[in-house]
Amino acid sequence: MKINTLMAGLTFAATALSSQAQQLDITVTNLTQGIYYTPILIGAHNADTSLFSTGEMASESLQMMAEGGDISGLSMMLSTANADVVENPAEGLLAPTMTTTTTLDTTDGNMYLSLVAMMLPTNDGFVGLDSWMIPTEAGTYTLTLNAYDAGTEANDEIINGGGSPGVAGIPAAPGGDAGTGAMGVTMNEENGYIHIHRGSLGDDDLAGGKSDLDNTVHRWLNPVARITVVVN
């Protein structure tokens, strides 16, 4: 009798903890000194949903985001899965070392947090958080995020405005500090799976060379972003 009561109580408590709606304050900081983030997409979603997974091929929507900064496809996918979504909290580009904050109210069952944003100037690099389980205990949680390569485009490092999926080249260097006339670093993307970005090469010839990127400005080391989540 007593044992049954206890078990019932535990089950109730576990259910209440795992699916309860939560109110989150989210702060995202661009830790780099030379990379801009295109509009950021944040979602709280269920266990069956993800924006990306390392070692898997990018979805078309992820490719749109990683090559051109277009988050509309991924955002629609999240909405279809009844996720709670924040689009573009920085209202445009998140410049080097800058921070943006937002809030996210999650609904029952949306226990996982994900985030993506394209990194400029790169061909198909993005910063990502994949399905972090939102703690049930109130508190402040800080995570650092790495740079990923969508595996959908050769990292030629040529800035030519190419931002549509499947179109070669880098859309832009928002800092206005890149070069022109590069021959291209590589024509191939041999790893077609989402992987940790190997970093950009760049060069010291802004009027030619292999890369339009400046090797003293557009490189990075991981981590490239910090996210602080306050669970209220």
Partner: peptide
Amino acid sequence: DLDMVGMHAGVVSVDDGL
């Protein structure tokens, strides 16, 4: 430079293109 603290990108070096 930028006059803002950030994470370091590592050094390039003469052997890696500078």
